[in-house]
């Protein structure tokens, strides 16, 4: 089990959110736990820049050899940037889920609610494994 970065926030859908503490634009990706359970990611679809999403919306999908999962917007706001590199090379989600494997950035509209701390997320995933 890879270690869970403590500076990030998390969702029950195994996504991570960066930048919650300082700001306006949050970065979203999927956790190492999720990428390990998926296996080799072969396709990722991210939302389009400019769309407005609400927390909990299904905004994309990530496919591996064996399965497909939805990507959810962990917070509401406008999608301001997407990671073109991960669309070209979805294996970045496996090799560097918290870094080069990021998926999209959202300009926060309102507050980031119901996110988990690293500690809470660790507890969640150790319960599942």
């Amino acid at each position: 089990m890879s270690s869970i970065p403590t500076e990030l926030h998390y969702t029950k859908e195994h996504e991570w959110v960066a930048g919650v503490d300082d700001g306006l634009t949050l970065t979203v990706g999927i956790t190492a736990y999720a990428s390990e359970s998926l296996g080799d990611v072969v396709y990722v679809q991210v939302p389009e820049v400019g769309v407005t999403v609400a927390a909990g919306d299904a905004v994309g999908e990530v496919e591996s050899t064996k399965s497909v999962s939805d990507i959810y917007a962990p917070v509401g706001g406008e999608v301001v940037e997407v990671n073109a590199a991960v669309v070209d090379d979805p294996s970045l989600i496996n090799s560097d889920p918290y870094g080069e494997g990021w998926l999209f950035r959202v300009r926060l509209d309102g507050e980031a609610a119901d996110l988990l701390s690293a500690e809470e997320y660790t507890a969640l995933t150790s319960g599942e494994s």
Partner: peptide, 8 residues
């Protein structure tokens, strides 16, 4: 065993 590392 489903996979040992990368199934690809």
């Amino acid at each position: 065993p489903l996979r040992y590392g990368s199934e690809s």
